[in-house]
């Protein structure tokens, strides 16, 4: 049995410990917001948080999260209240939307660690997340906007 928590809920699963976390999240837990894009940590579509660290779940064996806390896009906030989700709505960021879960999960760690990120911070933090539709300019604007919301409201 592999035990860990996902979005605050404890799960115990009978699964091959070498299975990538991504497929456990998607297939065993039915949380399909986390996406498969490359399977080799190239595109960032599968980004989740493990104890607060952004991780490419497509290359992380599920054994890595034993006893740890995993947060997926579904746990960022289901009611779209997270400042990043609000900013993403305001900037109308997504096109096809497939990469956006990963983009948001990376941006969440960026904002936590650097509440007022510079463009260079954004370049460093978001370069591991590919968007084929080309939403980068809007993602950049949305991150700055979310930072503004956090600064104004003092919450995250």
């Amino acid at each position: 049995m592999i035990g860990f928590s996902v979005n605050g809920k404890r799960v115990d699963l009978d699964v091959d410990p070498f299975t990538p976390l991504l497929w456990v999240i998607r297939e065993h837990l039915g949380l399909t917001g986390t996406k498969y894009g490359c399977g080799m940590a190239q595109c960032g579509a599968c980004t989740v948080h493990i104890d607060g660290t952004a991780v490419r779940s497509c290359v992380a064996p599920v054994s890595r999260v034993i006893g740890k806390a995993v947060t997926t896009i579904e746990g960022l906030s289901s009611d779209l209240s997270n400042p990043l989700q609000r900013a993403w709505l305001e900037e109308d960021v997504p096109q096809c939307g497939y990469c956006q879960s990963g983009q948001l999960m990376s941006a969440a760690v960026l904002l936590r660690d650097k509440p007022t990120p510079t463009d260079e911070d954004i370049d460093q933090a978001m370069t591991g997340n590919i968007c084929r539709c080309g939403t980068y300019p809007r993602i950049r604007r949305a991150i700055h906007r979310a930072a503004g919301l956090v600064a104004k409201e003092g919450t995250r």
Binding site: R26, L31, T32, G33, T34, K35, Y36, T72, I73, E74, L76, S77, S78, D79, L80, Q85, W88, L89, D92, V93, P94, G97, Y98, Q100, S101, L104
Partner: peptide, 19 residues
């Protein structure tokens, strides 16, 4: 006008074929 499909693309609810 803001896109109607944005909200579900921000919380993992949008269903793509692979989902």
């Amino acid at each position: 006008i803001k896109r109607l499909d944005t909200p579900e693309k921000l919380n993992g609810k949008a269903v793509f074929g692979i989902d």
